[in-house]
């Protein structure tokens, strides 16, 4: 094709190098590799910090009853909660740093944390 003849040898080299570099950034920045622990809070105080590498089940007692939390390698979720609307349960698995499921009625929250501290929100 005519367009291909416009490439010079170095252009191909640069195209391939660029492609390889972009490919290399995908796992580095985009596999959620930063998530390393789950922080479970009760009444705003840290109740437990669980490493995300191992399987773990946790029951957290709150004013309404017990909130069940399940941790699997790389992700965590609220399995059951006595709260009325079940928002935190319906959020499902959390796997990225900064993600949080809040069971407000039972005053329990589950947050994924990474190496760097994440902001909840930013506004200007």
């Amino acid at each position: 094709m005519a367009w291909l003849s416009l490439f010079r040898p170095g252009d191909w080299l640069l195209l391939l190098t660029g492609g390889a570099l972009v490919g290399a950034t995908v796992p580095l920045f985009w596999q959620g590799g930063f998530a390393d622990r789950a922080i479970i809070r009760k009444d705003g105080e840290v109740f437990a910090q669980v490493d995300l590498r191992a399987r773990h089940n946790l029951s957290v007692p709150g004013p309404l009853g017990t909130t069940l939390i399940s941790v699997e390698p790389g992700r965590a979720r609220v399995v059951s909660d006595p709260g009325l609307r079940q928002y935190c349960v319906r959020q499902g698995w959390l796997s990225r740093p900064g993600e949080i499921a809040i069971c407000a009625p039972n005053r329990v929250s589950l947050q994924i944390a990474g190496r760097t501290k994440a902001y909840d929100s930013l506004s200007y």
Binding site: L6, F7, R8, P9, G10, D11, L14, L15, G18
Partner: peptide
């Protein structure tokens, strides 16, 4: 860059990055 090997495509890719 040596013109024989690197053309506008190289310039453009480098500039875009």
């Amino acid at each position: 860059l040596p013109e024989r090997w690197f053309g506008p495509v190289s310039w453009s890719i480098l500039a875009a990055f």
